[in-house]
Simulated assay, not measured.
Amino acid sequence: MTIKRWVRWVLGAALVGAGVVAWLSPNYEEAQAATDRQTVDCMVKQLTQDDKRSIAQFADTNDFNALWHAYDRVFADCTVRGDQRDRKSELVTSAWRVLSTDREFMHLREADAAHAALGH
């Protein structure tokens, strides 16, 4: 088993465990919000540098297909509950908002904009 696969299993088990605990809590809406935050954080952390570069390249042109493609790859590994599949667009939008405030990602966007301004 590769290290990457092992990390996915551990991360998945941790997310499922946290999801079960949150789901059993008395306040379901609070639990849902907590597991959604975990899923969004996981989706942002699972993006590779190439994913981020690709998203940065198309962010200013509002190419949502590129955005969805990058998040499609990590969504299945990060979902905790089945109902999150029904709200995938909301979770991807939240992950995009989190990513767009990341300092490293902002630098990627600025570099891509500068590159585009030079006509490359």
Rank of each mutant, 00 (worst) to 15 (best):
R87A: 02
Q57T: 13
K4D: 12
L99A: 04
D41W: 07
E110Y: 01
H69W: 09
R97Y: 08
A33D: 05
V16I: 12
V44R: 03
W96T: 07
Q49F: 02
E90C: 06
G12Y: 06
V40P: 00
V10W: 02
P26E: 09
T48G: 08
S94M: 14
T39D: 02
V16G: 04
F75R: 01
W96P: 00
K45F: 14
T101M: 05
D41R: 09
W9A: 15
C78K: 04
V92N: 06
A114E: 08
A14H: 06
D112Q: 14
Q84T: 04
A95R: 02
V44S: 04
L67N: 01
T39S: 05
V40S: 03
R5D: 13
Q38A: 11
T39C: 06
S94L: 10
D41M: 11
V74E: 07
R53Y: 02
F58Q: 02
G17H: 13
R85F: 12
L91V: 01
V20G: 09
T93P: 00
S94V: 00
L99W: 00
T93E: 10
R87I: 02
A70P: 01
V10N: 05
K52I: 00
V74D: 00
S100K: 05
W23Y: 14
D83G: 11
C78F: 06
G19K: 07
Q32I: 10
A116H: 05
S54H: 14
F75L: 07
V40E: 09
L67S: 02
E29R: 08
A113R: 15
T39M: 01
D77C: 05
L11N: 15
D102Y: 06
T79G: 08
D41Y: 07
C42E: 04
L91P: 07
V98C: 09
Q32A: 11
A34V: 03
S100I: 01
V20P: 06
E110F: 07
H115I: 04
W6G: 11
D50N: 12
F58E: 09
Q84S: 06
F105H: 15
Y28L: 12
C78E: 05
L67V: 11
A13W: 12
L118N: 14
A14W: 06
Q49N: 04
D60R: 11
F64T: 12
D50I: 05
T39V: 12
K88P: 03
A59T: 05
K4F: 10
V40D: 02
K88V: 00
E30L: 13
K4P: 04
W9G: 10
C78G: 06
E90Q: 13
A59F: 10
P26A: 13
A31F: 00
V92G: 07
H120S: 09
E29F: 03
A111Q: 07
H69I: 03
